[in-house]
């Protein structure tokens, strides 16, 4: 019984949140890695692009709610999602046309791209704060829990409860669908393959008649979809706050590099690796050992490797370890 309790404890506090957070990071990291693979720069404006997409989704959600439209048990935000995606695509393409295209044609160095992405970061940051403000916004409606801890306890008779929020399930399902579609597109369709070819060898892609403009356009469209979906899922699960979205950029970058830059599958795994490390290393295992150890050996401290405040340190540590041992990422980079 104690063994079962300890397993449920870990499931409730590490596995379920890990899968949710990992999915959100994975979607974000795939977006960053696609930009890296095709457009060849680290986009520092990505966190704010996520915030922008989520903001549109929230505004549409509010509008729908004011009209009395809801999605039943599911959050209204899911209906608003396509509108958010469209706006984000428009914004991405706008910035590509007005900013990035110029530097692409000039074949500027990656650092210049990073710097102009900072400019866009400032602009998006301002736009989001001017329109919706800097504060925390909770826009989750619909049914909150699929399984409450108390219900689980009654059901199983165990001491430990297992709570599953509906946002967690929605996150997982949406991530699976999005990633399945994306990987099908990249590996099975002609356009997807041409995108990988372009990322792999730009000159040869041109010699094969692949149109770079179309690839770039497509990349922004996919990236905007991923950014909006990831941002909305994160916002539904936790809450929306522009500054948090900027900060999320750091673990997302770490996941991208860990997975091998330009490699979407790597980014996917990287997201989960970062998420699970973050959660598992900041969890206090005291209760867990209480179940497994005889009473005399019960731990006196929290048995927490590092305090929750230091979650950046975990991303950083993993990043540095990977860069030292496998500079091209765990999953051998550049395969978009």
């Amino acid at each position: 019984m104690d063994f079962l309790n300890s397993i449920i404890l870990l499931t409730n506090f590490i596995i379920v949140p890990g899968i949710t957070y990992g999915s959100q990071l994975a979607l974000g990291a795939i977006g960053v890695t696609l930009i890296y693979g095709v457009l060849r720069f680290a986009n520092f404006a990505y966190g704010d692009l996520m915030a922008f997409g989520t903001m549109i989704v929230i505004l549409v959600t509010w509008y729908l709610q004011s009209k009395g439209i809801s999605f039943g048990l599911l959050p209204t935000a899911l209906i608003a999602l396509p509108v958010g995606i469209l706006f984000t695509i428009a914004v991405s393409l706008f910035f590509d046309k007005t900013v990035f295209e110029y530097y692409r044609e000039k074949k500027s160095n990656p650092v210049t791209f990073i710097v102009v992405s900072l400019g866009i970061m400032f602009v998006l940051n301002a736009v989001v704060r001017i329109i919706i403000g800097p504060n925390d916004i909770n826009f989750m409606d619909g049914h909150k829990f699929i399984m409450k801890a108390r219900e689980f306890k009654q059901l199983t008779g165990l001491n430990e409860g297992l709570a599953i929020k509906s946002t967690q399930v929605i996150t997982l399902i949406t991530t699976i669908i999005t990633c399945a579609l994306l990987f099908y597109f990249l590996n099975k369709t002609k356009t997807g393959k041409s995108m990988r070819a372009y990322s792999d060898n730009e000159d040869l892609a041109l010699l094969s008649g692949i149109d770079p403009k179309r690839i770039v356009l497509l990349t922004w469209v996919i990236v905007s979809i991923l950014a909006t979906v990831a941002g909305t899922l994160y916002g539904l699960d936790k809450s929306f706050k522009p500054f948090t979205y900027f900060n999320n950029l750091l673990p997302i970058f770490a996941a991208t590099i860990v997975g091998g830059i330009g490699n979407p599958l790597g980014a996917f795994y990287g997201g989960f690796l970062i998420a699970f490390s973050e959660i598992a290393l900041t969890y206090a295992y005291k209760k867990f050992f209480k179940y497994l150890m005889p009473e005399s050996l019960e731990p006196s401290t929290l048995i927490q490797f590092i305090s929750t405040d230091y979650k950046f340190a975990i991303s950083f540590a993993i990043l540095i370890i990977v860069l030292i041992f496998r500079p091209n990422g765990i999953f051998k980079g550049k395969v978009i």
Binding site: K190, K193, S194, R196, A197, S199, D200, N201, D203, L204, A205, L207, S208, G209, I210, K334, V335
Partner: peptide, 25 residues
């Protein structure tokens, strides 16, 4: 059609995909 001296294949794509990309047009 042209075969460059270096970087003349898509190293990350499979052989078949390389051929498919050749016929992209």
């Amino acid at each position: 059609s042209f075969v460059p001296q270096i970087k003349n294949i898509f190293t990350e794509l499979s052989v078949k995909e390389n051929l498919e990309m050749g016929a992209f047009l």
